[in-house]
């Protein structure tokens, strides 16, 4: 049997990736369009990138987003890793099934429901809405993704490594710090990055639970997008896409070299 790709499979791949990247490519190309009319090419220009830096509200929103993403991803990483460790223990604990359900549900739950329910919680508790309510909300739905990523790593972890460490005299806490943690660290970092990206990307939940003065980048973009297509949005989108693509490529190169 030949290892060559079947022409049909090749066509599926080509069409599929053209579909995935076509719109993104259009957006990137038109971010360098000199014309303000988005669908008319008026020559190459970087003027929209220059105008981004002058947009104070956009810069503020970006900073808020980064702050929220960092804080919520850190929180989610700790909570999610703990959750993965709790589920990984062979021992059962009361409510394990409920816990597993609670951990999976936020991943498929429509965002509008999560957003609304958290907002109602914050109102009922009398919490002032702002940056920290977004952090708590984001940590809640991203911790599940962290838990899934870390749990997958823990599941493949050779138990005898932990037993060997204990056998060589390491008490449980030290077994965790010297063996378990270093070995699951790539997954923990991946979980952190995932949580960070999900937080940065979120519009719906943040819109519900944010308060005055805490406008995130997606919220800001959304209010502009509703007004129609504009070259400035193309420019900032291009920057975001470039950042993410470089990050993903760097990460895959890093893991490829290790493996």
């Amino acid at each position: 049997m030949s290892t060559r790709l079947h022409p049909l499979a090749l066509a599926a791949l080509a069409l599929g990736f053209a579909f995935l990247y076509g719109p993104i490519l259009v957006l990137v190309v038109y971010s360098f369009n000199a014309s303000r009319l988005v669908t008319v090419w008026g020559g190459f220009s970087t003027r929209w990138y220059a105008s981004l830096a002058a947009d104070g509200a956009l810069v503020t929103a970006t900073l808020v987003t980064l702050k929220v993403a960092f804080a919520s991803a850190s929180l989610a990483t700790v909570l999610g890793t703990l959750a993965a460790l709790a589920l990984d223990r062979r021992g059962r604990f009361p409510g394990r099934t409920l816990f597993t359900g609670l951990l999976v549900a936020p991943m498929v739950m429509p965002e509008v429901i999560i957003g609304l329910s958290l907002l109602l919680l914050f109102v009922a508790l009398g919490v002032d809405r702002g940056l920290w309510t977004i952090v708590a909300a984001h940590a809640t739905f991203t911790l599940c993704f962290v838990a899934v990523v870390v749990q997958a790593r823990l599941a493949t972890l050779d138990r005898s490594l932990l037993e060997a460490a204990a056998d060589l005299g390491a008490p449980p806490a030290r077994v965790f710090l010297t063996v378990t943690l270093p070995l699951i660290l790539p997954a923990v970092i991946a979980g952190f990055l995932l949580a960070f990206t999900l937080s940065m990307d979120d519009l719906v939940i943040a819109s519900f639970v944010s308060g005055p003065g805490a406008t995130t980048l997606p919220m800001r973009l959304y209010s502009q997008v509703r007004l129609g297509v504009s070259p400035e949005i193309n420019a900032i989108s291009t920057l975001l896409i470039a950042t993410v693509s470089l990050g993903v490529l760097a990460a895959s190169l890093l893991t490829a070299r290790r493996g």
Partner: peptide
């Protein structure tokens, strides 16, 4: 008492 594991359980890191 120390043990030598069947899989050796050498710490890969």
């Amino acid at each position: 008492v120390n043990m030598m594991f069947q899989s050796y359980a050498l710490f890969p890191h």
